[in-house]
């Protein structure tokens, strides 16, 4: 692991929604170690700054790293504005990954809200690539509107598969939308899954995760089987600077993936 960003070339970029882009990054030289699902990299937009972005595909080298970025601030907007062939700095992988091995032999529930689907996408790829190792797989995905849905081609492909249950719901429908309308908790727990033996991975706005975790607990999932990915202001990414601190936890180093039991009380503390 290095603290110096390694130059990566944007090999491809794809617009997912009006303000979300996926960048495929190829290293100059040997590149970084392999990422695990849920880990993140610090992406450096030269002249603008650095931001933590989870990997959204491309775990194994030499495949390009994929990072899905929403243009929400100065640095992320600069990243989204870069064209193919441009260079960004990348350092990582950082942070605790989704405990995918713990889910082997069990049903897997993926709960994603908004751009939170991006850090969970590698988990779905992994489970689908090793389907025989896992029980039933269910994805509950909530989005603001139909136009904000990420990875639409992939969602359609997943829906067509018999070995994954996909429920997509939007908070605000358009007249052309024929799918579900309502918050993501309306599709929890997924009917195909046995809650008592399942493992759940949640990523999205913290309020959404609080209510989704509560719905899963009510359905019988123990808190130890629910894992959430937190977002804080990561700067150094190695647990030194304290910008991302959540009381005694460094989200960059101890997380960003936490067992819900570890952080549930902290997430209710307004002072944090």
């Amino acid at each position: 692991m290095t603290l110096a960003p390694l130059p990566h070339r944007i090999a491809a970029r794809r617009q997912e929604t009006g303000d979300v882009w996926t960048l495929a990054l190829e290293p100059e030289g040997p590149g970084l170690p392999a990422f695990a699902p849920g880990q993140f990299a610090m992406l450096h937009a030269f002249g603008a700054g650095e931001v933590p972005i989870s990997i959204s595909a491309g775990l194994e080298r030499p495949a390009p790293l994929h990072h899905t970025v929403r243009a929400a601030g100065t640095v992320t907007s600069a990243l989204c504005d870069l064209r193919e062939g441009a260079y960004v700095g990348v350092r990582g992988p950082y942070g605790r990954a989704w405990p995918v091995a713990e889910a082997e032999g069990r049903d897997v529930v993926i709960v994603a809200g908004g751009i939170g689907l991006a850090p969970l996408r590698p988990v779905i790829h992994h489970v689908l690539a090793h389907r025989e190792r896992f029980g039933r797989l269910a994805l509950a995905y909530g989005s603001r509107s139909p136009a904000d849905l990420l990875f639409r081609d992939e969602l359609a492909a997943w829906r067509a598969r018999p070995d994954i249950d996909v429920a997509v719901t939007v908070d605000r429908a358009t007249p052309a939308w024929r799918g579900r309308v309502g918050v993501v908790t309306t599709v929890l727990p997924p009917p195909a899954v046995d809650p008592a033996g399942a493992v759940a991975f949640l990523c999205g706005p913290e309020v959404m995760m609080r209510f989704a975790a509560a719905a899963l607990r009510d359905a019988g999932l123990p808190g130890t089987a629910i894992h959430v990915s937190l977002e804080r202001n990561m700067v150094c990414a190695v647990g030194h600077c304290g910008h991302c601190q959540l009381r005694e936890l460094f989200v960059c180093k101890d997380g960003p993936v936490f067992c819900h039991d570890e952080v549930a009380a902290l997430l209710r503390r307004r002072e944090l």
Partner: peptide
């Protein structure tokens, strides 16, 4: 929760 507009950019 819908009124909260959780996914507001």
């Amino acid at each position: 929760l819908q009124v909260l507009d959780l996914y507001d950019p």
